[in-house]
Amino acid sequence: MSDKKTLIEVKGLKKYFPVKKGLFNKTPSYVKAVDDVSFTINKGETLGLVGESGCGKTTTGRTIIKLYEPTDGQIIYDGVDIAKFNEKQMIPYRRKMQMIFQDPYASLNPRMTVGDIISEPIMIHNLMDKKAAQERVQYLLNRVGLNSEHANRYPHEFSGGQRQRIGIARALAVEPEFIIADEPISALDVSIQAQVVNMLEDLQEDLELTYLFVAHDLSMVKHISTRIGVMYLGKMVELAESNELYSKPLHPYTQALLSAIPIPDPDEAASKKRIVLEGEIPSPIDPPKGCRFAGRCKYATEKCREVTPELKDVGGGHMVACHLYDK
């Protein structure tokens, strides 16, 4: 990938959720789910997003495609800032950006046939007449490795892997450019995971798709991603090309995260040194100032507790937010 054209540029993105405290509490508190995050996604690439549960991966994805209203920041899609667009202005973008969900069981309407599930977005966007839509459904079913007859069946008649294919066919129905896949394989068996990942890779190549891929299986994220962003408590703490990130993690949190991956090789597992992180991820409600990892970081200094480290390029596009790399 030599010509890196930016598809999406996110600048200073914030998403705060208000939390209800006691009845007589005057100052409202916020869950700072995404707190001043900036990054770019290039055309045709897969950006992986990893981090502990609750760190803001899903919220980041959903805010970019404006399923959530951003609290602050810019979302520049193909040169246009859509952050403050209203529903009407968003219509053309709703088609370009689609989402694949984690749970293939919950995300499909059980009372609709597979054909209707897949063609629904086409109808919503008024893209073609019923007959053409049916033809497109046939094409899509074949594209994701299902049969044309499957169009008349209901979701419960399919296995988890097949349902995930149906979800993917639905996302592809309106010819999107950008797809957010939020834990698309977590609910599937290992051998089925490989089928779905291969399919996502083929589709990306044939249809020139750009992916944001969220997952907690770090080996799979490395396999599928061009670049990977690591999030911690609402912040992007490191972002690099995927081989670079795995071979040369800079942020102490990334180092701990990668050392915790179970290696499917008994000899290597026995010789591997694991950095076991003490404690848990702190609450994102009114998080501490300074570096948010300071409470669990063995390198933390006074400065870390006072000054929030900025995400900076330390060479070759490898970005890290940590005072250890201040010049």
């Binding site: 890779e201 080996s219 490395k222 081989n243 795995y246 499917p264 290597e268």
Partner: peptide, 20 residues
């Protein structure tokens, strides 16, 4: 088949996964 279907995090070049 099981062993072939998982990605090898040690490898740098991307190999296609081999599902069962």
């Amino acid at each position: 088949g099981l062993l072939k279907s998982i990605p090898n995090p040690k490898k740098d070049e991307k190999e296609r996964l081999k599902p069962i």
